[in-house]
Write a protein that binds this DNA or RNA. Structure first.
Lengths: 337, 337
DNA sequence: AAATTTTATGCAATCGTGTGCATTGTAGAG
DNA sequence: CTCTACAATGCACACGATTGCATAAAATTT
């Protein structure tokens, strides 16, 4: 157990050759004779020789790892993104170090530190809800490490980003709600300093305006967690006249919203429509099944990872900031008319 | 951008010292004078010197990474386990390389290869449903790399494992169902060559026997995916007399089962009870909320990672195989009487 | 047969750190 | 004033792999 990996030297000693010859034989260097090559390659196979990654990376000073910072792992959307990142990293032979900030500012700062200590070549990050100060992200850039934000981008930092079209996602959803006959659409949003929340709010407002429906501040609340939803939704159901639709910032809030609406005695979607955001697995198991905006997390992950790897390898020629936008799709199920 | 990290040599050159002196000064070696130490340490701080991990690891030949193979990332239980692994790895200063086999045998084999190529010090693995041949896992052991299985263990390989008490989890759930008045409990299981599936089946059968209820093979089906459930559940609802409870191998199947039971016109839990396994987030949004067996994935992840790290660092003194069992808890909600 | 080219291999340095041993300088002891 | 002891630093090598250059041996040319 814990057997030492065999090295070039071991093979060299065995065959009474120099390490350099062995190295060249394995890499098919033209100056090596056929016999030596086959001999070396056979012995290498026999001993299951694997070049030491560390030594190689040290020599070329080309660490092949990238870091990821996600606010939450146990979360449909982010695990979808992670799967996309993972696939693309594997394709490019990059290793991944994953940190999760748990929506906590201090842990996010520490994650950046960890990743820079590990000397990753680049970082993919989505900021926590609690983050309002960005110097740790600036440190990444100052350190000469590539940085690509995804989804929860950080407006204070000048770097590449991949986002979804939050504005149009929200606009189309609310537009659909209105076209299906809703007039009092409530918006359960998130902290407005997050661009994703703010953009969705604007999409929501503009959809109302398009149909000449006045924006009613009493129908707009910050409610991005189950706990908040449990407080806010019941109170909104007492407004007179009651909202005839809820457009929610995520599926969890939408699903719990739906429960509370039902237990308050309203029918979905006849009395009140509900629309979520993400189109996660839970949209299939609510009753009725939940209409939601698909965020295509997998594609976002792939796109972000691809962009980062291209930057690292100098294949991304565009000099300025690259911003990629992933399209959303409204997936209509049974919680809307 | 892409600035080179500063090295010991850089500091040495700047201070007209040798790299060895600088190294010793930073590591507080007694043979270095106070003045030199403070001088070196200040300059190091000034230039934000970080020792090159690769060089260090090469020197000590002590790669600090561990690999993880999960069948699926976008999955409540496995992401919970991952979160636990991640926490413990971070605590021990280990980096994580995560591979996902996507329930596919070939990808699993390739993942093992990837991880061994990366020369990880140990691997945490949960096998895919498709795997019926284990030589790739044996390769890990033969290679001298530590291996700990979690949840979906592989019986063919002689190594440490962390599992949940599937047998008792199932036994207690079915026992509860019977005590609440059910007599015809259906079991929607998984491929019996997976120990988790087999153990749950035995727990199910023994709970029936405890109450002198005959085991009825027609009530036991392999149905571990939503697709299978959509085929099998409707046919089971036509059995006469109809089952009065469904005990399901996972929450997704349970949630969809619940939907189909309702649309077939049965009342839950009055006519038919439903119980899932995992206690994932979706149990909160079904209607009614789903009774389920909590698997404590986070604790499982932490336990498995701790065990692996102890093995790597020689802190686990037990010589033979270590098997840890994580307790389950039945969480009763509204889909059972 | 001598000179030149070709072929095949080894030497040594490199990447960034750490450490045993040798070396330098200085102070105290005799 | 010389010798010893000790403090402070540098040298050289190691970790594993790669690569320019030198070198040895063989094959070819003149």
């Amino acid at each position: 157990m814990d057997r030492r990996q065999i090295t070039l030297k071991d093979i060299a000693r065995e065959l009474k050759l120099s390490p350099s010859t062995v190295s060249r034989a394995l890499r098919n260097h033209p100056a090596i004779s056929k016999e030596t090559k086959t001999l070396v390659q056979q012995t290498a196979k026999k001993y299951k020789y694997k070049p030491n990654t560390l030594a190689l990376q040290l020599r070329t000073s080309q660490n092949k790892t990238i870091g990821v910072i996600v606010p939450e792992i146990i979360h449909y959307f982010f695990s979808t993104v992670l799967a996309g990142i993972q696939e693309e990293a594997e394709k490019g032979n990059y290793n991944l170090i994953i940190c999760h900030s748990n929506e906590n500012y201090e842990r996010e700062v520490k994650s950046v530190e960890t990743l820079l200590d590990a000397q990753v070549r680049g970082i993919l990050a989505s900021q926590s809800k609690a983050t309002e100060e960005f110097s740790h992200f600036q440190d990444i850039v100052d350190n000469g490490t590539h940085l690509v934000f995804f989804d929860r981008i950080c407006t204070g930092i000048n770097t590449d980003k991949v986002v979804i079209d939050d504005y149009w996602g929200a606009f189309n959803a609310v537009d659909y709600l209105i076209k299906s006959g809703c007039r009092r659409v409530a918006f359960l949003g998130s902290n407005p300093h997050l661009p994703i929340a703010n953009n969705r709010r604007m999409g929501y407002e503009d959809a109302l305006r398009k149909h000449s429906i006045p924006v009613d501040k009493t129908l707009m609340q910050v409610s991005d967690t189950i706990e908040l939803a449990r407080e806010i939704v019941p109170s909104m159901l007492k407004i007179d006249p009651v909202p005839d639709a809820f457009f929610c910032i995520n599926d969890e809030v939408a699903a719990h919203c739906l429960q509370m609406i039902k237990s308050a005695g309203f029918k979905i979607p006849e009395d009140i429509s509900v629309c979520g955001f993400t189109n996660s697995d839970i949209t299939e198991v609510t009753d009725p099944r939940l209409t939601s905006v698909d965020q295509h997390g997998f594609e976002m992950g792939r796109t972000a990872a691809k962009l980062l790897i291209n930057r690292i390898e100098g294949k991304e020629t565009r000099v300025g900031i690259v911003s990629k936008v992933i399209k959303t799709d409204l997936v209509v199920k049974n919680s809307t008319k």
